[in-house]
């Protein structure tokens, strides 16, 4: 892309979780549905709440707050499920409240500031950038990391083991 072209704009779906607003690129969002009845799956991570039946398609749902290792919250009628699709994996994200769809131009994106303490960085790994909208900021989430990072870690461990053989 040449520089004199108009600055790229991206649309984000924003939602509230805890006290912060988060944003997800709109391309990866399939739909937003109201809270559904969830069938729990035994022996899974705490943040995986279970399965829902989305018009005949069975998809897993995860609780974003638990994913961020924050306090659990009580589901109410504002609670929503954002159905996202990453690498052909469809997953529902349970969020406290849907905010709005915002447009953020690229020059309003900042790398996520961090003190680089290793354990904090670990917590921070889902946020790849922050976007400025007016006076507020949205934490922009990397959906792939949100779903998959521990799997990747596991795979790496496995791969290393394989190499050792």
């Amino acid at each position: 892309m040449s520089e004199n072209e108009e600055v790229q704009k991206q649309k984000y779906v924003t939602f509230m979780s805890g006290n912060e607003y988060f944003g997800l690129k709109i391309e990866c969002v399939n739909e937003i549905i109201v809270m559904q009845e969830i069938t729990a799956i035994p022996e899974t991570e705490e943040y995986i709440k279970g399965l829902i039946n989305l018009r005949g398609k069975i998809i897993p749902v995860i609780d974003v707050r638990l994913r961020f290792k924050q306090e659990p919250f009580k589901y109410n009628d504002r609670t929503c499920i954002i159905v996202i699709n990453v690498d052909s994996t469809t997953v529902g994200l349970i969020v406290e409240k849907i905010a709005e769809v915002v447009e953020i131009s690229e020059d309003n994106l900042l790398p996520s500031p961090t003190l680089n303490h290793s354990d904090k960085a670990q917590q921070d790994r889902y946020v790849y950038a922050i976007g400025k909208v007016g006076n507020s900021v949205k934490l922009l989430l990397d959906p792939e990391k949100l779903l998959h990072d521990d799997m990747k870690v596991l795979e790496q461990v496995n791969a290393e083991e394989d190499e050792e053989e």
Binding site: I41, T44, G56, I58, P60, T89
Partner: peptide
Amino acid sequence: PDYIKRVQGLSGCTQMGDGSI
């Protein structure tokens, strides 16, 4: 769904008549 790791003793899921799983 693949996203959920394999649980021993469970081989799949199904949708029941009332839409529950």
